[in-house]
Design a protein around this nucleic acid. Structure first.
Lengths: 343, 343
DNA sequence: CTTGACTGCTAATGCGTATTAGCAGCTAAT
DNA sequence: ATTAGCTGCTAATACGCATTAGCAGTCAAG
């Protein structure tokens, strides 16, 4: 059984007593061409195809047509390791859904070689198998991004990206406005003394949060604490928060918020009674923590879906560069309450 | 920018002042052929390739060679929805690792059309783009499996599968012996009256557990309760367990074990003091529960890795059908204790 | 009876690569 | 001086399909 050669249109043609071209036309000729093949001939060919179980070789088909109906998915970090899985899975879910709806398959680009940095253009990378690709990851390589932008290979980034030798097509989350809305909510509850825990630079996603935050600090509001370092212990951070007299604390990372909350509870402080806490973004495994932090939702699945749709547009219609930011709706949570009257 | 034609070996050849054939040979000629191209020429060609960023079109390559270095991954359920993600992610991690090590890329086959059942042989047979494929999912379609076995397309199943018109190549977990080992451990601790909570039929994975379980019930041991229904409430199940006088309860599903444990605790019963509990298999998010159940480990990543390696063997060396069952090591846990002396 | 349009097909070509056969030019051995 | 063998390449072809140009035959209109 194994070793049987694949049937070709030639074989079918011989069996049906026609030419290979006719078989191809019967299979998927334009209506105008089909009109010129009489019913009888068509049926004869179809019959042979049915009895032999012939299926056209997709490779040859792509070869002839130039398109694959394959989308590449390039991740700057391996996609499935458990720590990363939580991050990538929702995106991939959206991507898979939309790809399926548009009848595309997905090619996961595994990067080149273990240990080496994952580079889109790394040698031997078979990026070009796909008709276009989605690029995701926390940190992008600027040089590669530039090369993509400058090149003619269709791609879409997931997450906002600064221009890199030209505008980058992307679908991202509107972290700036998501953050701003939370700050305004806090201010409406009387919070004036605000703290920001987390970095404010480097990746776009971080910059956007900081922009939204600092842009919303106006009037009587005041930034009384900004802890930038990551490695700092929760107790130290808590000390700093208490010392600063902050009434609302904004965390970039859920993990930091969780640790600080635990430290606070241990010290007999309660959130949001003693101070409020807000997390700037939703996190996949948030339910693992027992506290529901006030935050904003990151529509990861929708980002995946829309990025995929955009990529297909760029591939099929050579659509111009688009940049989409999806709204990040606030999540109520239990950690933002009215500000205490200062003593 | 968009619309620039892809580079071909022809273009490279013109730029380097050689023929297309030479470019191809430089790229991947046999050593004997390469020996006849002087260093100088090779470097000139390589230089052009480097500066232009040329990458061979894999489709054309496959066309000519019949190999693409692409592995298809077919899942009978969408791979990323959150409930499934926990199930598939570890397999995919292993698959991705090994594929990367073997320098293959992964093609996720999205199945045909939303809502329709996912069928390997659905229209277009896109499957054939890959050199071979891995098939995973809880439930397989027997007819499709048979068609795969009978055909000459290389594939490997993840999880043991019964013969389907011939032996199925697979890498699975040895649930039968994993289960048997746990039963024997319980018996060594004096447990004679055993309960089995969960189905015993349908999918191979279920059958294997039941086989391992019932095969280990010998001598003085006795199956005093078998709850097959899934929908049953935890309280009902707990009642049945208590009534049966079982001293050790084996659960197919972690979820059932968790619910019964909660119900027991509420009733003032404690595990493993009042009765022991064993879960037949490891679960990804087990840490979410606060109880560490005694169970066996399912080496999901390793299964993914070995299945991938096996598939590559079948593709490249036309290796014969292999069937591998990986050992499922016991997990100590805290829910299996010595049997109480019966009153 | 010529022209034109239509019918039912086929030959030929291109897609981009891998691979094989072989050609010219040279050197060393007979 | 002929032959054999080596070097450094290239021309040609195959892979399986889609597609276009066009051929031979028929038929109706002018």
């Amino acid at each position: 059984m194994a070793g049987t050669k694949r049937l070709t249109q030639h074989d079918i043609a011989k069996l049906a007593g026609v030419s290979q071209a006719t078989v191809s036309l019967v299979l998927n000729g334009a209506p105008t061409a089909l009109a010129r093949i009489p019913q009888e001939t068509r049926e004869r060919v179809q019959q042979v195809i049915r009895t032999t179980g012939y299926v056209a070789d997709p490779i040859a088909r792509r070869m002839a047509k130039g398109l694959n109906r394959i989308l590449g998915v390039f991740t700057y970090e391996p996609a499935f390791p458990s720590e990363q899985a939580d991050f990538f899975a929702p995106f991939l879910l959206g991507i898979e859904e939309e790809a399926q709806a548009q009848n595309y398959d997905l090619l996961l680009l595994t990067g080149a070689g273990v240990g080496r940095e994952r580079k889109i253009f790394a040698d031997g990378n078979r990026l070009r198998i796909a008709d276009g690709c989605l690029v995701l990851g926390r940190e992008f390589d600027r040089a590669e991004l530039k090369r993509l932008v400058t090149g003619d290979y269709p791609f879409v980034a997931i997450g906002r990206r600064e221009d890199a030798g030209g505008p980058v097509p992307y679908v991202g989350g509107d972290y700036a406005n998501g953050t701003r809305a939370l700050v305004e909510k806090a201010r409406a509850l009387g919070h004036d003394r605000l703290a920001f825990i987390g970095p404010s630079g480097s990746a776009e996603s971080i910059v956007d949060r900081w922009r939204g935050f600092s842009g919303a600090i106006t009037g009587s509001a005041e930034l009384v604490l900004h802890v930038d370092e990551v490695g700092r212990s929760a107790v130290d951070t808590l000390d700093a928060i208490v010392r600063s007299g902050a009434s609302a604390v904004f965390f970039v990372e859920l993990a930091d918020a969780v640790r600080v909350e635990a430290a606070a509870r241990e010290r007999g402080l309660s959130i949001p009674n003693d101070f409020s806490a807000v997390v700037l973004g939703s996190h996949v495994r948030a339910e693992r923590s027992h506290v529901q932090f006030t935050s904003f939702n990151i529509p990861r699945e929708e980002m995946g879906r829309q990025a995929t749709a955009m990529l297909v547009r760029r591939i099929e219609d050579a659509a111009p560069v688009e940049q989409i930011l999806l709204t990040c709706e606030p999540v109520e949570g239990q950690t933002l309450g009215p500000a205490k009257k200062r003593t």
